[in-house]
C-alpha cells in the first residue's frame, strides 16, 4: 500500500461519484468540488474504502468568496476539508460551496469527532450551519454576539454590553482596499452604522 497521487484518487472517486468535480485553484492546488448533497456519502466511502482510508480530518475551515476575484464571481462561502490518511499517507482536499442565502452543509462530526470543534468554529466565524451537529454553538465569540466576523461584509461592533469598543478618539484602521472593491462590494449600509467602522 502506498500513497496515491491526486490523479489516482480522482480516478477512483470519479468512478463512483460522477457529480464530484476535480478542480485546481488559481495556483494549481488540486481539490475536489463536492455538491453538499453528496458530501456525507462521499466522506463515508473515503473513510472506509480500503485503498483510501482517510482516517483523519486534518483541518476543516472555510472562507468567504465575496471579494475574491474569481471567474465567475461568487458570493458563496467555501468550506474546505483537508483529509489525511495515517495509514496510506496521502492527502486530499475537498470543497463544498455553501450559498450565502442558505448556508447549510451536512455535518461530518459523526465520522471524525475532530469535526465537532472545527464545525463550531466555522459556524461561529463564517456562519455556515452544519446540519446534524449535536451542539452547534458559538465557540470563539460570546453566545450573544452579532454577526459572523470572518465574512467579508462583517461590520465591526461599536460596543458590547454597553462598553464602547474603542477608546476615546480612536478609530478602526481602514482595512486596505482590494482591487475590484468598488465594483463588487456595493456597501450594504447598516441601519445604525458603527462609529468608525471600516468601510465594507
Amino acid at each position: 500500500m502506498s500513497a496515491l497521487s491526486f490523479a489516482e484518487l480522482c480516478e477512483r472517486v470519479h468512478a463512483r461519484w460522477p457529480a464530484v468535480e476535480a478542480k485546481r485553484s488559481d495556483n494549481g492546488q488540486p481539490f475536489l468540488l463536492v455538491p453538499a448533497t453528496e458530501l456525507v456519502a462521499l466522506v463515508q466511502w473515503l473513510r472506509s474504502d480500503r485503498e483510501l482510508r482517510f482516517d483523519a480530518l486534518s483541518d476543516l475551515t472555510g472562507y468567504d468568496l465575496m471579494k475574491y476575484p474569481a471567474t465567475p464571481p461568487s458570493d458563496a462561502i467555501a468550506v474546505v476539508y483537508v483529509l489525511f490518511s495515517y495509514v496510506q499517507k496521502h492527502k486530499l482536499m475537498l470543497r463544498v460551496l455553501a450559498p450565502r442565502a442558505a448556508c447549510v452543509v451536512p455535518s461530518v462530526s459523526f465520522l471524525w469527532p475532530a469535526a465537532l470543534y472545527f464545525e463550531r468554529e466555522v459556524w461561529d466565524l463564517l456562519g455556515v450551519h452544519f446540519d446534524g451537529h449535536p451542539t452547534l454553538l458559538r465557540i470563539m465569540t460570546p453566545q450573544d454576539w452579532v454577526g459572523h466576523p470572518l465574512r467579508k461584509d462583517y461590520i465591526y461592533p461599536s460596543e458590547y454590553h454597553g462598553v464602547p469598543h474603542l477608546r476615546e478618539g480612536q478609530h478602526f484602521e481602514h482595512v486596505p482596499q482590494r482591487e475590484g472593491d468598488a465594483v463588487k462590494a456595493a456597501p450594504t449600509a447598516p441601519a445604525a452604522p458603527a462609529k468608525g467602522a471600516p468601510p465594507a
Binding site: 495556483n27 486534518s58 472562507y63 468567504d64 471579494k67 476575484p69 483537508v82 486596505p176 482590494r178 482591487e179
Partner: peptide, 15 residues
Amino acid sequence: MGYFIVSDGTKVPYR
C-alpha cells in the same frame, strides 16, 4: 500547525 492561506494577488492576504 497548519496554515491555510488564500491570496487574491494583492499585498494583503485574503484569508
